[in-house]
Design a protein around this nucleic acid. Sequence first.
DNA 1: TAGATTGTTAATCGATTAACAATC
DNA 2: TAGATTGTTAATCGATTAACAATC
Lengths: 206, 206
Amino acid sequence: MKIPAKVVNRLTLYHFIIDSLSADENYVSSTKFAKLLGVDNSQVRKDFKYLGKTGKCRVGYPAKALKKSIEEKLGFRATRNAFIIGAGNLGAALAQYRTFDDYGLHISALFDTDPQKIDRTIGGKNVFALERLEALVKKLHADVAILAVPPVAAPEMARYLAAAGIRYIWNFTPCVLDVPSKVKVWNENLIGSFLQFISQEKMASK
Amino acid sequence: MKIPAKVVNRLTLYHFIIDSLSADENYVSSTKFAKLLGVDNSQVRKDFKYLGKTGKCRVGYPAKALKKSIEEKLGFRATRNAFIIGAGNLGAALAQYRTFDDYGLHISALFDTDPQKIDRTIGGKNVFALERLEALVKKLHADVAILAVPPVAAPEMARYLAAAGIRYIWNFTPCVLDVPSKVKVWNENLIGSFLQFISQEKMASK
DNA sequence: TAGATTGTTAATCGATTAACAATC
DNA sequence: TAGATTGTTAATCGATTAACAATC
């Protein structure tokens, strides 16, 4: 059963919640999850149905089993290798975002065009010259690019990534990319996200 | 007429597109916008209806007027002041994300608890001791906090922010925050975003 | 037992897509 | 004119919320 994208997002939030429970909280009710997330409690129960896990009346859902089940369904095990394109402030920050590895996203390396940055390391990861991208896509089995270059460089870089065999571009630039349809783009769009946030009233997640 | 949150997000993307047009492209069709965003062209026209702007048959929408209209509707003019909480890698990167100012989000200062970081500047912005937050919320009229602290510090920090008078928390930590209902939280949830991305097939935005 | 909580169905709500007459 | 594009309504789709019997 295919899990809808929005449910995938909420499943990670449930996982965060379980992670932050104290050791003696063995069971959690759908109402507790719902309050923390600002959603209806029946939605929580529906989400858990995708996991195939059942709860106990009067008690709730077993925290540890639920956590493990989320990890299996979302495939944290099957780590994906990604490259960060642009070793500036944002690229460096994302390279050092420790939690990615816990959730199945491994940053294999960074790429830049600035000779000052090339051949250094950031957070223990190599920064390579952009020209080496295509070869390393194949060698390291990375098909995800995290795009963190200045806006002015984004359009050309997107074309370059597509030509180099990248299949997924996680786009952190304030630009809309024009790429062949075989390449999937996810616009993180921080600005749109922020305006969405302040334009509405309720607590929310994407 | 209230603009739905998802439309707000798309309006910023249209704005990005118009920004990247060459100088001689005076009119843009809904089909062009639609292709770049991976949405239906009638959706684009519907979105523009919120702006009150009309297009021309056989020609499209006037780029410059559309751009200006988006800026007015989304209130780029009415700049909001925000504080970044946590002057680590991510906080520093967001403090230097130049485009925020163009879209009405002004980062006024950063806050940290690390004496090594306090009283320095990052991207021309002061880093203050956390204790000074409450006073500066009032003085600088900032009610938005961008939370970029390590996960372990997030729950306590969220309570602290709420007590200091922060009304909006833009949460970049992999944690679900438990705050009074008067405080609005937007979970940027990078991990959920990424898993959503690779779990679905089509090009997308949040 | 009484009451809290689940599991599930039905109802509602909102967003997207399809269709097409009107326009230039 | 013919054809591309808008503006708009109707249809579809998906996500959320409400409701409630079943359970322990």
